[in-house]
């Protein structure tokens, strides 16, 4: 079995408890305007090009005549010949077996830190079978498992993961369906329904809300209410413009140019006021 992923990050400290290895799945069915991992959206491997590193050596043109023309499909295959690191192929099809092997390498560190493996993305649940396989292998080896999700998938996908998942980190971007559609491109009815059902069935669920001033910031109270009703913890995560450069490398436009980055103190105060947590991770 294969999975399309774009990174495996070891020594990850903010995607669940302890020292973790996070597997980033490629492909997402949301299009959040503020997404800081735009390369995670398309389910196919794609080309990232950093113009400042390019020396114009022409090796990629020799490899593929479509390079740097309008015919280029951004498949990223030419990155293999780029000598200066200007071209990178984001995303790869990898055997689940191999992913598990990497994920299990840090077991000694999971043991001493109470950490484990986190599946993130993109939306990992779009590849639910691969996820379930990885999680099952992890559990078999006594490793703590977590899944980060935006929840916009049929609940049957969750059901495949439920027996092997210790913790779900569930993202909520807003309650108002109109605003939600504007911000992330889809309605939130399925997401909210899943949030409710998952809270009933999963071992442990924590909700997270990205706080984007001027876009969903007014929603924060409604989200609080919603999560409180489910009797689950909520953490806020602050907007950051860290992903700006990636849009350019993918040949895309970043539409959120003028959003203010809230300070950590501001976020801490807000979280305290609302009686929720603040996670200093970026969204």
């Amino acid at each position: 079995m294969y999975a399309v992923i774009f990174d495996i990050q070891r020594f990850s400290l903010h995607d669940g408890p302890g020292i973790r290895t996070t597997v980033f799945f490629k492909g997402c069915n949301l299009r959040c305007l503020w997404c800081h991992n735009p390369e995670s959206q398309s389910p196919e491997p794609e080309l990232m090009f950093y113009a400042d590193k390019c020396t114009g050596c022409g090796k990629c043109r020799a490899f593929c005549e479509k390079a740097f023309t309008e015919l280029c499909e951004r498949c990223g295959k030419c990155a293999s010949v780029c000598p200066c690191g200007a071209k990178e192929q984001s995303g790869r099809k990898e055997e689940v077996k191999e992913i598990v092997k990497t994920a299990l390498r840090d077991i000694p560190f999971y043991k001493t830190s109470g950490g484990g493996v986190t599946l993130s993305g993109g939306e990992p649940l779009l590849q639910a079978d691969a996820c379930a396989e990885i999680l099952r292998e992890c559990k078999k080896n006594g490793v703590h498992t977590a899944v980060e999700t935006a929840g916009n998938v049929p609940f049957s996908a969750f059901e495949k993961l439920l027996p092997h998942t210790d913790l779900f980190l569930f993202d909520l971007k807003g309650i108002n369906p109109v605003l939600h559609k504007q911000n992330v491109g889809v309605s939130n009815s399925l997401i909210l329904e899943n949030a409710g059902r998952l809270s009933q069935t999963a071992k442990d669920v924590r909700f997270r809300m990205p706080y984007i001033p001027g876009y969903n910031s007014d929603e924060v109270f409604a989200v609080c209410e919603f999560v409180r009703a489910l009797d689950k913890p909520l953490e806020l995560m602050a907007y950051h413009d860290i992903g700006t450069g990636k849009y350019a490398s993918l040949g895309r436009e970043y539409s959120l140019k003028d959003v203010r980055v809230p300070s950590a103190r501001e976020m801490e105060n807000l979280a305290r006021e609302l009686g929720v947590m603040f996670n200093p991770a970026f969204v």
Partner: peptide
Amino acid sequence: GKEAFIALAKAYFT
């Protein structure tokens, strides 16, 4: 960070 460091060192020592 400190917790992670301690866990890292303990695993290394083990």
